[in-house]
Structures are given as structure tokens and as C-alpha cells.
């Protein structure tokens, strides 16, 4: 029975994740079109809603190209390395509290409830850099190699700030269990959310969001791709489903990071002024909060230009890291005061 429940939960969560990723590709194009006063895809299905499906079919039908001199094994491994960690991390995200569907008790709506859930997330999202750098190296192309190198340097740099900021939340909540973190915030009073912790919360939220942008290689930090300079960056040589896997990985990572931000700073599934809300309301709340961050990802991409590489590194090491450390200290001070 628990196995069956796990199976249902897994299919629900992963189905949801993949659907979200697909919807995101469409949303990306639609929102960018709106911002640029265009219409966007509108030929496939009513209003273009079936565009992701058409894209998927196209990706499958495209020719698989492996460049001459590429390291074939690693070349094939890289897209998997990019997609799998992003998908794995979703396992520990709590989407809603106690869930009962048709009398079937699902417990917490999360695939697993790890004590070190946050560590798990950070560890696996750290792994996703391998996909990028291996893909860049195995392609046997100068553009890919440069893109991969830049991306790995960038991701490693910003991971520090990301972890430091996450640590702030761990300090505030006193736990690395994501469920615990949410439950601490879930008091019915939205002011209990970590983002409303004076100074520490606001600075932490901004730092964390920016760091997730860098971590997922999104604009304005998309140095891994960087079309004007590097053609397509690390995935220059990739085509067909291999390219689609990179694409999928990127959008999954975005989704997971949006979920994580919600969990850490916006109280996860906690509904404002309704402590013991039913699971469906909780899930809807969670999705709404996550959607905001997902929208933010797209919104920023179509607003800001790309950084220069040295600016990016300066920002990471000379600004973000000190602020994140100071913020951690501040959090400590805050905890000892209260």
C-alpha cells in the first residue's frame, strides 16, 4: 500500500513537473511576445497552447548530430547529467500538508520527507554543473568549451552565496528539513514567513532569488549559452532530443528553484490567515507563490541585458558573498535577540 501511494505521488509530482516545464516554454514565448508588443506562437491549437507539443514532436524528429572528434560517451551522458539532478531535487519539496485523496491518506504531499532536505536539494543542484561542463568539453568545439567553462565558474561562485543565504533560513528555522521550515512559518500569520523577518529576510530573499538566477543559468547570467558571443554556448553542438534534455533540465531547475524560494522565504504551502487549510487550498497557494517566481524568471529575462563576465564574477565574489556572510551574522544576532 505505501508503495502504491508512493507510486501515485511520484507520478503526480513528476507529471506536474514536466507539465510545468512544458507550460514554461510556452509562457516564456508568450510573455516575451507580450513585453515586445508581439503576439507569440498562435498557430498550434487555440491561441498556440499546443506549441510545446509541436516542439516536442519536432525535437524527436530532428536529426541527431554528433560532431567529429566528440567524446561520444560523455557527449551522450552530459544531457542526462543536466536533466536528472534538476528532476531529482523535486523529490523533497513539500507541495502541501496532510493530504487525503478519496479517503487515501497520502501524508505530506512530498515524495520523501528527508531530515536534510535542503542539503539534498543544494547537493543535487550543485551536480547539474557537471552536465554543462561535460557537454561543453565533450562537444569538441571552442564555443562549447568556453561556454561550459564560464558556466561552471559562474555556478560554483554563486552556489556559495546561495548556500550562505539558505543557511540564514536554516538558522532562523532551526532545521534543514524542508517540512520543518515550512511548518515554522505556517502559523496563519503571513508575517511569520521568513521574508518578513526584519532585514535578514528581505536581504536573504533578494540574494537568494538572484543567486538562483545564476545557479540556473538564466538571464542576466546566461553565460553558458551567451548567443552573441558563443553561438549557443555549451549546447552549440547538441541537436534533437539531447538538446531537448538540456532544455528540459533548465526549465526543471527553474521550477525547482522557484519552489525552493517559496519554501524557504514565502512559507511554502502556508495559506495566509488559515492555519489548517485543506490540502487543495494549500497546494493552490503553493502553486500561486511558485508561479510568481517562475514569472519573475521570464520577466527578468526579457528586461535585463546580459552581464559582462568580469562584472558577474565581481558581483559574485565581492558583493554577494560578503553580504550573504553579513546577513548570516545578522541572522545569528537576530536569533540570539529573540
Amino acid at each position: 500500500m505505501p508503495f502504491l501511494i508512493l507510486l501515485i505521488k511520484a507520478s503526480l509530482i513528476y507529471g506536474g513537473l514536466l507539465v510545468t516545464a512544458a507550460v514554461m516554454t510556452l509562457a516564456e514565448r508568450k510573455i516575451s511576445a507580450r513585453i515586445q508588443l508581439r503576439i507569440g506562437p498562435n498557430r498550434v491549437g487555440p491561441g498556440g497552447v499546443l506549441q510545446p507539443l509541436a516542439d516536442g514532436v519536432k525535437f524527436i524528429l530532428k536529426e541527431e548530430i554528433t560532431p567529429d572528434g566528440a567524446n561520444k560517451g560523455i557527449f551522450r551522458l552530459a544531457p542526462i547529467m543536466a536533466a536528472v539532478p534538476a528532476m531529482l531535487t523535486v523529490a523533497v519539496i513539500p507541495f502541501a500538508g496532510e493530504t487525503v485523496i478519496f479517503g487515501l491518506d497520502f501524508g505530506l504531499l512530498s515524495l520523501t520527507d528527508l531530515d536534510i532536505g535542503l542539503l539534498f536539494v543544494l547537493a543535487f543542484s550543485g551536480l547539474s554543473v557537471y552536465g554543462v561542463i561535460l557537454g561543453g568539453w565533450a562537444s569538441n568545439s571552442k564555443y562549447s568549451l568556453l561556454g561550459g567553462l564560464r558556466a561552471s565558474a559562474q555556478m560554483v561562485s554563486y552556489e556559495l552565496s546561495l548556500i550562505m543565504t539558505a543557511l540564514t533560513v536554516v538558522a532562523l528555522s532551526g532545521s534543514m528539513d524542508l517540512r520543518e521550515i515550512v511548518e515554522v512559518q505556517n502559523t496563519g500569520n503571513p508575517l511569520a514567513w521568513n521574508c518578513f523577518t526584519p532585514v535578514v529576510g528581505q536581504v536573504g530573499l533578494v540574494l537568494f532569488v538572484i543567486a538562483t538566477f545564476a545557479e540556473t543559468n538564466r538571464h542576466p547570467f546566461d553565460f553558458a549559452e551567451c548567443e552573441p558571443e558563443l553561438v549557443g554556448g555549451f549546447h552549440t553542438e547538441y541537436s534533437s532530443m539531447k538538446f531537448a534534455l538540456f532544455f528540459l533540465g533548465e526549465y526543471c531547475a527553474m521550477t525547482v528553484m522557484a519552489c525552493l524560494t517559496t519554501v524557504l522565504f514565502l512559507g511554502g504551502y502556508s495559506v495566509p490567515f488559515w492555519e489548517d487549510a485543506p490540502w487543495m487550498v494549500e497546494l493552490a497557494t503553493f502553486m500561486a507563490k511558485t508561479s510568481f517566481f517562475l514569472f519573475l524568471f521570464i520577466w527578468v529575462r526579457w528586461t535585463l541585458p546580459r552581464f559582462r563576465y568580469d562584472q558577474l564574477m565581481n558581483l559574485g565574489w565581492k558583493v554577494f558573498l560578503p553580504i550573504a556572510l553579513a546577513n548570516l551574522l545578522l541572522a545569528g544576532a537576530f536569533i540570539s535577540l529573540t
Binding site: 507580450r34 515586445q36 503576439i39 528586461t303
Partner: peptide, 20 residues
């Protein structure tokens, strides 16, 4: 940055110029 974001957000509600 926030100012820029506000500008792009406002743009989303302007009439579109694309010709089908």
C-alpha cells in the same frame, strides 16, 4: 532594475503591433 521591470510589465498591456 525594479524600474526596468515596471516598464516591461506596463508594456505587456499595450496594444500589439504584429500583423498576421
Amino acid at each position: 532594475i525594479v524600474r526596468g521591470l515596471v516598464i516591461t510589465f506596463k508594456k505587456m498591456f499595450e496594444p500589439r503591433v504584429t500583423r498576421q
